[in-house]
Nucleic acid binder design. Structure first.
Lengths: 183, 183
DNA sequence: TTTTTTGTTAAATCATACTTGACAAAAAGT
DNA sequence: ACTTTTTGTCAAGTATGATTTAACAAAAAA
């Protein structure tokens, strides 16, 4: 996990912090941080958490496995790959090429009128963000129903039971960004 | 970091794997994984990486700091908070309430005709996803210019120098999802 | 030039990551 | 029923490696 080191270093520099300065805030030795930054040592999860907090980052941000350089970063509107039906009348399209190193999975949902996801309460951990582009969608979180119209957005933890349904008469469209990519 | 444990457990169950089964794949003892899952022990970063790989997840996904239950997950189209100008004529709006526990930061960009981000090549690590909703935007990655029209999307590592510009005559709009939230 | 502050390294130490082996409860045979 | 295997958990031990100490040279500041 050498990557953690270089990320810590750049985050520290960003704050204008010195090795000893950061060390003092954390209650560890400056020498140790030096070793961590150069990849000669690797911190425990708990001190990594402390480091992240002190630098104003999340642990996930510092880890950042995904450093692959992308061959073709673009997906054109007419070249989207169809994923699969998440329910009758619900179509999903990939908005980026699949890559386990990616931290997000952006999808385009097209939901036919009246279609819904069923009671399928996904239980994956992670987080989800939805922005409605067209029509109206009813999203149920923990048995609370929200009605989202064009331009409305919602953000929630995937762990809470959720389901969705197209209320209106026209086909609804939404951007759906999921983390992590597990589809 | 108790959260890592419960995530590992649910990921393991998801695969129908037994403690000993997973342990064998990793080359560690089943007992140890049990302790990790229950929060009685915490794995080293390198074995955590192994665990993540074996379960088909990224390390970041297993860590998942952000478990806060959201008070109000919704942001209405007319209630978006204005963030700040990323350049003359470029306006950013938050598509969710700010929260350091969130793994993503979804933004709406509105770019006036002719406006650009300047040569400001952001250097943060992390990843970005952009979907153009209206108009056309030119995005430059590593000195390679891509022209994105309505419906086109792009995904890249924030570490590569990037800049953007509105080419057309009308105002352009794009969803911009950044990870991690560092704005 | 001195003095302080910077990052780095080798060797020592000590916490804790990880193992072993044994246990009860459940599942699966017979 | 009642063995036999498989499940997850725990206490105690071991050893790896996370972390410290102390000393070093290079740079910055005085």
């Amino acid at each position: 996990m050498k990557i953690v080191g270089v990320n810590i270093k750049s985050a520290r520099k960003e704050m204008g912090l010195t090795l000893r300065g950061l060390a003092e805030k954390l209650g560890v030795s400056a020498s140790f941080i030096s070793q961590v930054e150069s990849g000669k040592a690797s911190p425990s999860l708990s001190t990594l958490k402390n480091i992240a907090d002190a630098l104003g980052y999340t642990v996930s941000a510092l880890i950042d496995d995904g450093q692959k350089t992308e061959t073709n970063p673009i997906v054109r509107a007419n070249e989207r790959k169809y994923l699969h039906e998440a329910g009758k009348g619900m179509n999903m399209y990939l908005l980026t090429s699949r890559d386990p190193n990616k931290q997000m999975e952006p999808l385009l949902f097209k939901i036919k009128e009246g279609a819904d996801s069923g009671a399928a309460s996904y239980k994956h951990f992670g987080q989800e963000f939805v922005l409605v582009l067209k029509g109206a969608i009813e999203i149920t979180l923990n048995d609370i129903a929200y009605i989202l119209k064009k331009g409305d957005s919602i953000y929630f933890n995937s762990s809470v039971p959720h389901a969705f349904k197209n209320l209106g008469k026209e086909e609804a469209e939404a951007v759906w960004v999921v983390t992590p990519p597990t589809f």
